[in-house]
Design a protein around this nucleic acid. Structure first.
Lengths: 122, 122
DNA sequence: CAAACACATGAACAGTTATTCATATGTTCA
DNA sequence: TGAACATATGAATAACTGTTCATGTGTTTG
């Protein structure tokens, strides 16, 4: 891939040129970064975090989720759809009900990593 | 964004009542969940992730960031402000330039946790 | 089959957000 | 002091997102 035309660069271009080269080589793939941002976007909503926390405790059906989280069934379903599409949870039908549970062990570790940052603040 | 709504619950209320009680007790504090979502919101933008990835390699000034990431200086500054306000990065002035670097070890672990999820997909 | 229930989903709306543009602040140096 | 440079920031705009409302799908049961 050809180098992007530097839109802006400070005067000491010679000095920082090498650094920029080095950084460009060690940056993750553009697509990976995009996917990563998309993933964190999923965690960037308290309703979804709450759902994940509940499912982290136990497999739960949709209406119980709505009850525990004090959300409408529709709102819960919309969020479950997003979580499922991103393979963070999975659904299991049992008669009229659908029970959801975590589909990825990393969900807990991602949440834990975020919590650590919060608990560290002064 | 979070609204109060009428509680919904499926018919088998007696069966799930105990489960709901248990879940309610083990859920994280409401404020913590909110803060956690706010934190992940920061990571939920590819421009900010890219900035964090760059700073994960080296301390870099604003105009070099703009050059590497092919963004305008203004756009970079706006994002740096957000990252700084959330204590993910810190700035160090050196003459006319300001050099930014990571301010939290957890930044790397949060990104790593997210990456693991992506790399796991079939 | 029809009714009741659990859940899913499309459309619309309100609130949020990242970027751009213009301009302000802060620093160095002639 | 004033010009040039590096960065910061306010306002405006376009794009995105979560919820609600209405309705559709799938399942059980009378």
């Amino acid at each position: 891939m050809e180098k992007m035309n530097p839109v802006e660069m400070c005067d000491m271009s010679e000095v920082h040129e090498a650094l920029i080269e080095k950084i460009n080589r060690s940056l993750p793939d553009e697509d990976d970064i995009y996917d990563l941002a998309e993933l964190f976007k999923i965690f960037g909503d308290s309703s979804r975090i709450r759902i994940l926390c509940v499912l982290s405790v136990s497999e739960v059906c949709v209406c119980d989720l709505a009850a525990v989280l004090n959300m409408t069934q529709s709102a819960v379903s919309h969020q479950l759809r997003i979580l499922k599409a991103n393979r963070l949870i999975k659904g299991r039908r049992e008669g009229k009900q659908v029970f959801y549970s975590l589909d990825d062990e990393h969900v807990r570790s991602i949440i834990a990593a975020g919590m650590e940052h919060l608990k560290e603040e002064d």
